[in-house]
Write a protein that binds this DNA or RNA. Structure first.
Length: 286
DNA sequence: ATCGCGTGTGAATCATCGGC
DNA sequence: GCCGATGATTCACACGCGAT
């Protein structure tokens, strides 16, 4: 069994309240996020979702995401789980069909009302009870409850994509900015360019971007670029650090290395070696 | 609520270095 | 030639304030 708490195959946090959201991040586990109450904008990749109570997000954690409740209090339940672990402990065919909706990489945001909402909330409550018990039987019941939940929400899932609530003018502006950044993050980018492309004042853009996403434009850009670099390193272990650096939009290797080390705790070269070894060892297991 | 401007501060960039 | 570190310069942005 894995010992480190961050490495646990399933982590469940029921109705917890935080003033500030998470940083823009990715992780290997799948994530289930249910929004109970409050206000929050949720960024997945380059899309904004203005959450309202009853919204449930199901996603592959590899997409860059962050929750921004701003200065408001809010209540959410979230769960991380490792799909390969569930496949191991649960019957393979049952598990596989529960995950048909998520598919390999899909993300879903659904809105629950009335009966179905009550049902899901009660279900999460029950799961929390089981999760809190520290015995093997309760934990197995918890896993089955998770499976049951996935089956329950499956019919709601085809409605992928946009959030239910209408976006304000401000949020639409930020969505336009995110779309532009997603298309151009690998190119040279400065505020004048954004200004002329989107016809918005640069100080105004900086302000509303921070309000809606919880991060500044260039922090977003940095996260997007570094995450892309990480993906490219994992995909191809032959490619040079400098190639990746220029591909994701940095002009100076030194700057790229410094930021990469800041974010991931190792230099690009070290990361590439680690990713390469990981690939070799997982291939030899098969 | 949507914009615009001035200013101090800190982060990004640039230039240059040394190690391999 | 490739990569990473460091100091100097440039630029984004937080903040305060005012306009529409």
């Amino acid at each position: 069994m894995l010992a480190h708490p961050m490495m646990l195959p399933v982590r469940f946090a029921y109705r917890f309240d935080t003033r500030w959201g998470m940083n823009f991040h990715t992780h290997r586990e799948y994530e289930l996020y249910y929004f109970h109450q409050g206000r929050c904008t949720y960024i997945i990749g380059s899309h904004i979702h203005v959450l309202s109570p009853g919204d449930l997000i199901l996603m592959n954690g590899m997409t860059l995401h962050s929750a921004n409740p701003g200065p408001h209090h809010y209540l959410r339940t979230n769960m991380h789980f490792d799909p390969s672990y569930l496949r191991e402990v649960l019957n393979d065919s049952i598990f596989t069909s529960a995950f048909e909706t998520i598919g390999q990489l899909g993300n879903h945001i659904i809105h629950l009302e009335g009966e179905s909402r009550t049902e899901v909330e009660q279900h999460l409550h029950k799961m929390n009870g089981l999760y809190q018990q520290n015995d093997a039987v309760s934990f197995r019941r918890f896993l089955l409850a998770l499976l049951d939940l996935l089956y329950y929400i499956q019919p709601f899932c085809p409605t992928t994509g946009q959030s239910i609530r209408k976006m304000t003018e401000k949020e639409l502006h930020v969505q336009r900015m995110l779309t532009y950044l997603e298309e151009h993050y690998s190119e040279e980018l400065h505020m004048e360019l954004l200004e002329s492309a989107l016809f918005l004042n640069k100080t105004y853009m900086a302000k509303i971007f921070k309000e809606v996403t919880g991060m500044t434009i260039f922090i977003y850009l940095k996260n997007r670029r570094l995450n892309q670099a990480k993906i490219l390193f994992m995909m191809d272990n032959k490619v040079s650090v400098s190639d990746i650096c220029y591909t994701v939009g940095y002009k100076h290797l030194s700057h790229f290395s410094r930021l990469f080390k800041q974010k991931f705790g190792c230099t690009p070269e070290q990361f590439q070696r680690i990713a390469h070894h990981h690939k070799l060892s997982t291939n030899s297991e098969k």
